[in-house]
Amino acid sequence: MRPILLSGHERSLTQIKFNTDGDLLFSTSKDKVVCAWWSANGERLGTYSGHQGAVWTVDVSPNTVLLATGSADNTVRLWNIKTGECVKTWDFPTAVKRVAFSPDGSKLLAVTEKRMGFLGTIAVFDIAYGDGELNNLNVQADEPSLRITCNESKATVAGWSYLGKYIIAGHEDGSVSQYDPKTGDQLENVQAHEFDHQINDLQFSPDRTYFITASKDKSAKLMAASNLAILKTYKDYVILGGGQAAMDVTTTSARQGKFEARFYHKVFEDEIGRVRGHFGPLNTIDVHPAGTAYASGGEDGYVRIHHFDKPYFDFMYEVEREQLRK
């Protein structure tokens, strides 16, 4: 599994994202640039420039027409993927840490930072796609259709469950909450991770019925979207969203390869493999929608795309094989 090394960023990566087809990979970094890559060979397609600060987050609309990015310059920008032009800019009082399109692409949420007297919020926008010929993409609502304010602990990450039924948010204090995207009411709040261990990433399963969280407490949890029940726990999960604190980095950097991506069996919670290579902590990973590859972005400024080899697909527990035969 020889990785493709993408070295287009000058500073550490913040988020990477495959599009729905998996042919494109978008990456954001603290160097203010958003890059688009061909996932098959690692060739750079282009960049989206305009942000004035570190870009924290990126998401692709499900139809690969629009790209949303959130940045430390307190804006969310919407880009025409094909042309690279910025079609819309929303201003916020504080930095934007996470953007996410709803499964049908009709809505976009943005998580804003708590700072300078402003509480952390989750803003939801209605997204229009012009006339279907990629024209008039700049016709977008100016104001959010909904604004959820996080009074207690600020949200760090958020996403949409199936049918866009819930907004699931991970908080700084290690809890996970469920909101109603119509009213903005908090429906549920679960202390999923150890208290005061920030949740760094939250990603949904393809059918969006369950999701996985990564936290600073060095574990990852698989949770149900409908009732926030913890289904599985993966220990020592140091990779997702750079679970390793900066303080530890200096002590472990003596050993290259300490920074690794670990693979766990989703159902059995066993570790089945590790991939090394980054020489800094891994900040973000994303898996190809078809499951044939994954990419990781590190503090070292590199993106590595790994296409899985045959043994990976062949690997199966005896129990699963039995199941399959039935």
Partner: peptide, 15 residues
């Protein structure tokens, strides 16, 4: 197909 991309067909053509 509520969860599938809206206007996907139209948009795809462009790309």
């Amino acid at each position: 197909d509520a969860d599938s991309p809206k206007l996907a067909k139209d948009a795809r053509v462009g790309i």
